[in-house]
Structures are given as structure tokens and as C-alpha cells.
Amino acid sequence: MTLRFAPSPSLRHVALAAASFAALATAGGAAQAQTVVKIGHVGPVSGPQAHYGRDNENGARMAVDELNKQNISIGGKKVTFELLAEDDAADPKQGTAAAQKLCDAKVNGVVGHLNSGTTIPASKVYNQCGLPMISPSATNPDLTKPGYKNVFRLLANDNALGAGLANYAHGTLKLKKVAIIDDRTAYGKGVAEVFAKTAKQLGMEVVSQQYTNDKAVDFMAILTAIKNKKPDGIFFGGMDPQAGPMLRQMQQLGLTKTYLFGGDGICTDKLIELASGAKTLGNVVCAVGGASLEKLAGGKDWRARYDAKFPGQFQVYSPYTYDATMVLVDAMKRANSVDPKVYGPKIVEAAYQGVTAKVQFESNGELKNPAMTLYGYKDGKKTPVN
């Protein structure tokens, strides 16, 4: 005889209740479904330019932290933002490797790179894998020349910076003779060539053109050759790890009345430390492709928030990485999608009021109506001069 056991009513009720609870839990989980949006950032966080890279990364990280407090939903799902930061050490090969790594990680967008020499080759990688990228600091005009639809620049390029400095040297300072030094990088060479070309067009004499590299610290031979030409000013196309020693050596050689011009690469707070008390710091005139934070609505408040979060680390580009991150997310919101193929075309339609500017782009990815600020170092502090 086969015995059959039926579950008791109480056990049946327990089973039904457990099944109902599991269904509710599943439904609740679906209602709370989240999308993780990965924003890639690349900059040099090792090597002599690490202070630039940390500052840039800080700006992007600050934006991500603030976005995560806004409870943003895109495509019907709550979004959590995550920063994937890579180091390119200001080296083009490491830059392309970092770009490929972000492509493989399927990040949703990229803020970077810092240097023109790393950004230009990396942009080709991002174009091939369909990732939108916004550089906060690469100023060489060649970045946008290939016409990639996914590549954008958030500040003025070298054509504006080099020409603006030459015009100031000629029109305001009334200089007659200038010398040129560049570090042979895409950035340094590019901005120096624009300065030299504009200086000649304005009637200034370029008395010497010298070359170095982005690892050098000894410029005595170059500066001695320049001194013999008696220029009123020297333009240096390069970064502050070289400009600091250059200022000290200019003082040693008695070039104490000679101006040192440079683009945004030398226009940092770090330059004060690198000049090690050289009085020639007071002869520096440098240009940044944006308006000064002090003159922007909300600029002082943004800087106060940055300094509270990253004390003593501000250099120059972090407001641009902050804005670049916000512009990517603004495009995602307008497209109602975090898919690069869907939101990417919306970036060029941006009309985003950022910390650095009202961000709008030309069809080629250049910023519309970019501002430019000239700075000097008065009493050891970087100060706008226009």
C-alpha cells in the first residue's frame, strides 16, 4: 500500500507567504535598479607633471561626488557615477595604452587627457571604439583637425594663447626683440610657433630660437646664447617643471629685466615653488584659455569647495575637468541614455553653464567664443593682468 502525505494547511500557507515575499523582494529590487556610469579620466599622476594630473583628476572626482548626491535618473533608472582614473605619465605611448584600457573597460565617456602629446594619439583610439572624450587642457590645434565627431576641447587652443601673448608683448609691453625656447612636445612646439609667427607679423624681431626637452633642468647654455642677443623677452613653450629652473638660471645670468612668456603649461601655482624664490618670477606673463575663477559667477565658491576637499593641490585645469564631466552627464540627461552612441551626438548641442564658461561647441569640437586670461606673479601670487 502506498502512503500519500498532503501538506497541512498551515505549511501550505507558510509556503505561499514565502513565495509572495520573494516576489515582492524581486519587484522591489527591480524598482531600485541602478545603472553604474563609468567616467574615465587620464592624466599624468606620476613623474614631474604629477601635480597637473592630480589636480585634473581631483576636478573630475569632485564632479562625480557631487553628481552622486543629486539622485539622477536616466532612462528610468537611478544612476551612480564612478571615476576610472588612469595614469599616462605625460607619455604618448602610455597615453594610447590608457585609452585602450578605458575602451576595453567600456566606460561611458572620457575626460582627458592633459597633454596635447598624449591627447592627440589617444583621440584616435577613442574614435575607433566610439567613446566621447572632452579634453580639459590639450591646446594644440591638431587635436580637432581630423574631424572626429567624438572629440571636444573645453578651452582656447594654442592659436589663441600664442597670439594673445604676442599681442600683449607688443601692444602693452612695447617689446622689440624676443627669443623663443620650446621643449619639442606637441604642446610646447605648437604654442611657441604661434607666438613666433604672430610676433614677426607685429614687427617684433625673433633674435634666437632654441630647443630643449620636457625632462631638462639645465638651461645655462641656451640662456647664455640668448643673453648675447639682448632680447626684451623670452617665450618658453613647455611646462612648469622646466620653467622653474629656467627662472632661477635667468637670475643667475643677470637676465633680471627680461620677461618670460608662456602658455598655460607654466601658468600654475606650483611655479611659485619651483622658482625657489627667484626674483625673475615677477617677470612671468602666462596665458590660460579661460576666464579667471575670481571673475566668474560661482568661481570663488567652486574654488572654496575644491580647497576644502583637496587642500593645497589646485593648479590650473581642475575647473575644466569638473566642467567636462558635467558636460558629458548633461548630454546623457538630454539624450535620456548613457549609451555613448546615443548621447554622444548630443554633446555638440551643449549649452551648459559651467564654472569656466557657458559651454557651447563648434561643429569641429572646439569651444565657441573661448575666453583667455593673462596672469603675472605679483608678490609671489598668481594674479590676473587683464
Rank of each mutant, 00 (worst) to 15 (best):
L161V: 00
G130H: 15
A324N: 00
Y148N: 12
G76W: 10
V348A: 11
Q353F: 04
E86W: 05
K145A: 13
F81H: 05
R54E: 13
Q249V: 02
V385G: 10
G188N: 00
K200G: 14
V359S: 06
Q201Y: 07
K358I: 01
A27Y: 01
V288N: 02
G147S: 03
P384D: 13
G162Y: 02
T26E: 07
G188H: 00
A199M: 03
A179S: 11
K229N: 06
T35C: 09
K177G: 07
M204Y: 12
C129E: 14
F195R: 09
S363P: 12
K174I: 07
K257R: 13
M239S: 02
M62D: 02
F195I: 03
C267T: 02
P384E: 13
V151I: 06
A291E: 02
L175P: 00
A335P: 06
Q252S: 06
P44K: 03
A278C: 11
A15Y: 10
W302T: 08
G53K: 04
Y126V: 07
E349M: 15
N167D: 08
Q353N: 05
Q360N: 14
V327Y: 14
V178F: 08
I74S: 06
F361N: 05
Y168H: 08
A60T: 11
I222M: 12
K149L: 12
A23H: 10
L296H: 00
G312D: 04
A192Y: 12
K124H: 08
F81G: 10
K215V: 11
G95F: 01
G164I: 02
S318A: 15
L67F: 12
N213T: 14
E205H: 09
G40D: 04
G312H: 08
K106F: 09
A33P: 09
G117W: 00
E66A: 12
V338L: 00
A196G: 09
R305I: 08
G75L: 12
R12C: 07
T224W: 04
P121D: 15
A350G: 04
K381P: 03
H170F: 07
I266D: 06
S137W: 04
A138C: 03
K189S: 14
Q32K: 12
S363Y: 13
T258D: 08
K368P: 11
E366C: 10
S8G: 09
S135R: 01
I272F: 00
I226F: 05
R334F: 09
K270F: 02
K176T: 01
Y343R: 00
A169S: 14
G130W: 13
E193R: 03
P384L: 10
N150Q: 12
Q210N: 14
K257S: 15
Q353G: 10
G53Q: 08
A122D: 12
G244D: 05
S73G: 05
A350C: 13
A27R: 02
G76H: 08
D339H: 11
G188V: 02
Q313A: 15
D264V: 00
L11V: 12
V284C: 05
T26K: 03
V151F: 08
K368G: 11
A31T: 04
A6W: 13
F314L: 14
Y320K: 01
S135T: 15
K368F: 03
P340G: 09
R61N: 15
S363Q: 15
V36Y: 00
L293K: 02
V288D: 03
P44H: 02
K341E: 14
Q353P: 02
M220R: 09
L114Y: 05
I72C: 05
S337R: 08
